[in-house]
Simulated scan of single mutants.
Amino acid sequence: MGKGDKKTKRGKINRGTFGARRPRIKKKPSLESKISIDKKAIPN
């Protein structure tokens, strides 16, 4: 178990691949994308 092992986290880092042991980190959507700047609140 080490750098050459395909199934370990260290092995995934060494090979530069992703999998169940080392999933890709998904980027969180920014606040700007959640709040639409184009749409303005309509006053009642």
Rank of each mutant, 00 (worst) to 15 (best):
I35S: 04
P43G: 00
K39Y: 03
P23G: 08
S30M: 09
G16I: 14
A20P: 07
S36D: 12
L31N: 15
G16L: 15
R10N: 00
S30L: 07
I13Q: 14
R21Y: 02
S36L: 05
I25P: 05
G19W: 06
E32P: 01
R24I: 12
I37R: 14
G16H: 11
K7W: 10
K7Y: 15
P43N: 00
T8A: 03
K6E: 14
I37Q: 10
N44T: 04
I13W: 02
G16M: 14
R24S: 10
G16Q: 13
K40C: 04
R10W: 00
K27D: 08
R22T: 04
N44K: 08
K7M: 06
L31G: 05
I13T: 10
S30D: 12
T17G: 08
M1E: 05
A20Y: 06
I37S: 13
I37F: 11
I25C: 09
N44L: 06
I35Q: 06
K7L: 11
K26E: 13
R24T: 09
G19M: 11
K27P: 02
R15G: 08
K6N: 09
L31P: 03
T17E: 14
E32W: 10
I42E: 05
R10E: 03
N14Q: 13
R10G: 00
K9E: 02
S30R: 09
D5Q: 03
I37A: 14
I35M: 07
K28F: 09
E32G: 05
S30E: 09
T8F: 01
S36A: 05
I42V: 09
S36P: 01
A41Y: 07
S33F: 08
E32H: 12
A41V: 10
G4S: 15
K12D: 04
N14R: 10
K40M: 08
R21S: 11
G11Q: 01
R22C: 03
S36Q: 07
N44C: 04
F18P: 00
I35L: 14
I42P: 01
G2T: 01
R22V: 00
I35N: 05
K39C: 03
K39I: 09
T17I: 15
K34I: 15
N14G: 05
K39G: 00
R24Q: 12
F18H: 13
P29H: 05
N44E: 06
R21N: 12
T17V: 15
G2M: 00
N14T: 14
G2E: 00
R24W: 10
K40P: 02
A41P: 01
D5T: 03
D5W: 01
K7Q: 15
R10H: 01
G4F: 07
R24D: 08
G2S: 00
I25K: 13
A20V: 09
G2H: 02
K12M: 15
N14S: 15
I13H: 04
E32A: 15
G19R: 07
K27T: 06
I42D: 04
G11F: 00
S33C: 08
R21A: 12
F18V: 10
E32Q: 13
K28E: 13
S33Y: 07
K39M: 04
A20L: 10
F18D: 06
K7I: 02
K6P: 14
T8L: 02
